[in-house]
């Protein structure tokens, strides 16, 4: 068993009057890919955003319970520091209206890095890791908005990787992409696993089955079951999980 990277204990999240998550206990191991699955509104995205405190951006969110990153409580951490350590990739690719280079360099500049050579090195390294370098190395100054959808999403991954996070959160990273671009993202996730811990939310169960080591199933704000992905998809122990993965929700 890999050492625990993130530990979630008794997590409860409320939006205004609605309870989004309740009594969630979950551990994320170092260098694993953990998939969060469940029907819409089950709380999987809320759980994901709790890990880098992005829920705080929304008004009226209340949270109880504890989340620790390598043993340190994240609610006591400087949020900037936390988000540097826990990066995020969103559902819709959202590059800034800047050049490819400046997109990747953004987090580094925010963190106060100014050395041009260091920036260039880190940008290249991140683009290589995100499997985009070969496609863009000759046009780093071009607008990021001119890239294709799949390239934009890989650029967003590169942007998240540039600040060298330990954990990468992915919120349905391929849901807006065609099958080939999706396959590339999935391939990328396999490669990134060796360096990063990845938590991915997906509506696509086959995708969860393909990319993740472990899968957690959430339903109506509760964690129903978490286990090895193979087990969840061949022999889940909870009836709700079984009904969900076989398509018996109505």
């Amino acid at each position: 068993m890999e050492p625990v990277k993130v530990r979630i204990e008794g997590l409860e999240v409320h939006y205004a009057s609605k309870r989004a998550l309740h009594g969630v206990h979950l551990e994320v191991n170092t260098n694993e890919v953990l998939a969060l699955i469940g029907p819409s509104g089950c709380g999987k995205s809320t759980l994901l955003r709790a890990l880098n405190r992005m829920n705080e951006v929304l008004p009226g969110v209340k949270q109880r319970g504890s989340i620790t990153l390598e043993g340190d409580r994240i609610d006591q951490m400087d949020v900037v520091e936390l988000r540097r350590r826990v990066g995020m990739v969103f559902q819709r690719s959202n590059p800034f209206a800047k050049s490819i280079f400046e997109n990747v360099a953004f987090g580094l500049r925010i963190a106060g890095l100014t050395s041009t050579s260091e920036l260039a090195g880190r940008v290249e390294q991140s683009l290589v890791q995100a499997a985009l370098w070969d496609e863009v190395k000759d046009r780093l100054g071009d607008s990021a908005l001119a890239l294709s959808g799949g390239q934009q999403q890989r650029l967003c991954i590169a942007r998240a990787l540039a600040v060298q996070p330990e954990v990468v959160l992915m919120d349905e990273p391929a849901s807006a992409l065609d099958p080939i671009a999706t396959a590339r993202i999935e391939e990328l996730i396999h490669e990134l696993k060796t360096r990063y811990t990845i938590v991915i939310v997906t509506h696509n169960m086959q995708q969860a089955a393909r990319v993740s080591d472990r899968t957690a199933f959430l339903y109506m704000g509760e964690l129903v079951e978490v286990g090895r992905t193979e087990t969840i998809f061949t022999n889940p122990s909870m009836k709700r999980t079984e009904d969900y993965v076989t398509g018996k929700f109505g």
Binding site: F233, T234, N235, T241, E242, V245, T246
Partner: peptide, 9 residues
Amino acid sequence: RQPAASDLR
């Protein structure tokens, strides 16, 4: 259909 769980079995 990419069956899963009991369907797959």
